[in-house]
């Protein structure tokens, strides 16, 4: 049995002990898999690579809420970049984009609660949430139009946004529902 701490509310945006620990686990896993780099190249493309671990951040957002999703994506990417030696702030805009994707995935269960009556529908919603969150969240990288003025709109769109969104959407659409289906029985067992 779990003891509930006094004074910690459990709203959508609350930062409780549970949120802190789940976000830390999510960020650590994301950073670790980033470091191990599981890129799967898409045949017939130059630079589209699927990163399966991307599905982790959409899963953590979907399963534990928008705060966990944002922290998993943002901190996970920052720490992962540090582990690989890329530097925490070298590509800060990508970290924010990852965070936003996790956060948006975390909002879906609240928006679509009525459509998630069975595990199957929950898995489908998780896949949709992962894809939509990726498409919207990664729009943030267009901030490079201001911070990297050498990058034109077309260059950002064709070399960064589209390849990333394709690869990450595939990962999110497959990995998120798998993890949701694996987590559901355990969640019920734990009484969450």
């Amino acid at each position: 049995m779990t003891t509930t701490a006094m004074g910690q509310s459990e709203g959508t945006w609350s930062v409780t002990t549970r949120v802190i620990v789940y976000a830390a686990i999510g960020a650590a896993l994301y950073a670790l898999f980033n470091w191990l780099s599981f890129g799967i190249a898409m045949p017939g493309t130059n630079d589209v690579s699927i990163r399966p671990h991307y599905g982790l951040l959409t899963f953590f957002g979907f399963a534990f809420g928008p705060v966990v999703g944002f922290l998993t994506g943002f901190v996970g990417n920052v720490v992962g970049d540090q582990l690989t030696g890329w530097g925490a702030f070298t590509s800060w805009q990508w970290s924010v984009a990852n965070g936003l994707a996790g956060m948006i995935a975390g909002l879906f269960p609240f928006w679509m609660a009525s459509r998630m009556s069975s595990p199957g529908s929950k898995a489908v919603t998780a896949a949709v949430a992962g894809v939509v969150a990726t498409v919207i969240g990664f729009l943030f990288i267009f901030v490079e139009l201001v911070t990297q003025q050498e990058m034109g709109f077309n260059a950002i769109l064709t070399t960064e946004y589209i390849p990333t969104v394709i690869g990450n959407s595939i990962a999110a659409a497959i990995v998120t529902p798998i993890l949701v289906l694996a987590w559901e029985p355990l969640r019920e067992q734990l009484g969450r």
Partner: peptide, 14 residues
């Protein structure tokens, strides 16, 4: 505080 602890935990969990 909570976010600082979260980052600390992340580094320790890896």
């Amino acid at each position: 505080d909570k976010i600082a602890v979260m980052v600390d935990l992340t580094v320790r969990f890896i």
